[in-house]
């Protein structure tokens, strides 16, 4: 048993790299997901995933399969969409979800247009679904740097971010943190998706961001607790996903995300805060 768990990582460098990459992402993406969920912007992660794809594709068309070009392209495209959507929403004529939908659809169609004009390539599947078993030093460094930067930033803006989610009116009435907090948070979302797509691909990156976060809501009653649970769940899912994909020879990225999905389903059933199974065994009510 111990061998089955440890041997793949002892024997193969690519498994160790994959593990390090996944652990780094598991530390940083779930907290972002928790706040996306608390802001009721869960689907924004998905939209941003699409917004990043064309930028990465353009980077690929210009510079080939270059990590730097694709990351930069993805980051630029994602940031442009997120900031444009955020600023338009600040004007309060249309809500953020509507303005985001508008901008990401433009970005997505522009990307598909460009790729089609320049001829398609099968390697683009790499962008879509990642290649967690082929992470090189540069990719690991990028993922680790993004994880570090985003965790430190999150610590700095934690209180304003909680208030911005809970009671934005109040935050605006006592300080000037509201808009900066919101925009910094959007940048973090994009950064984390860029980090995620190196390993898991643009679509899967959203999964490791959100699935542990929504599952965590069934276990904790405060933002800090949710973040702790979400990170733990993501770490565990990454580890389990890598092992399963190794032993059963199945694609790695989707397996990791499916492990996250299993955690979500399990939480929905067994979570201490509103899990379905607890509802089947109602405890007697208290006196007061």
């Amino acid at each position: 048993m111990i061998h089955a768990v440890l041997d793949p990582f002892v024997e193969f460098a690519f498994m160790r790299r994959a593990l390090v990459g996944c652990l780094a992402i598991s530390m940083t993406a779930p907290p972002i997901g928790v706040f996306l969920m608390l802001r009721r912007m869960s689907l924004m992660g998905d939209a941003m995933g699409h917004a990043i794809l064309p930028g990465a594709a353009i980077g690929y068309l210009l510079a080939g399969l270059s990590l730097f070009a694709m990351s930069l392209g993805g980051f630029a495209a994602g940031l442009a969409v997120a900031l444009a959507a955020g600023l338009v929403a600040r004007s309060r004529v249309i809500r953020e979800d509507a303005s985001l939908a508008g901008f990401y659809l433009i970005s997505l169609s522009l990307g598909v247009f460009l790729v089609s004009v320049h001829g398609t390539n099968v390697d683009l599947l790499h962008v879509l679904f990642g290649s967690v078993l082929a992470l090189n030093d540069a990719a690991l460094l990028l993922v680790a740097s993004i994880a570090t930067v985003s965790l430190v930033t999150l610590a700095v803006i934690y209180r304003p971010l909680v208030l911005e989610c809970f009671d934005p009116y109040y935050l605006r009435s006592v300080s000037n943190w509201s808009s900066p907090t919101h925009l910094i948070f959007l940048v973090l979302v994009v950064l984390n998706l860029v980090a995620g797509f190196q390993a898991l691909g643009t679509l899967m990156a959203v999964g490791i961001m959100l699935l542990p976060a929504v599952g965590a809501r069934f276990w904790a009653d405060n933002a800090g607790g949710m973040i702790a649970v979400a990170i733990a769940a993501a770490l565990l899912s990454s580890f389990a996903g890598l092992l399963i994909s190794y032993h059963y020879n199945v694609p790695t990225g989707p397996t990791v995300i499916l492990a996250c999905g299993a955690f979500y389903l399990f939480s929905m059933l067994a979570g201490r805060r509103g899990g379905a199974l607890w509802g089947l065994m109602p405890a007697k009510h208290l006196e007061a």
Binding site: L38, F166, D167, Y170, N222
Partner: peptide
């Protein structure tokens, strides 16, 4: 009040936000 009442925050923490200044 544009307050998300479903937000996971305790009464104590919510009131403590009054000390923002």
């Amino acid at each position: 009040v544009d307050i998300d009442r479903g937000f996971p925050i305790s009464v104590f923490d919510c009131v403590a936000m009054g000390l923002w200044h």
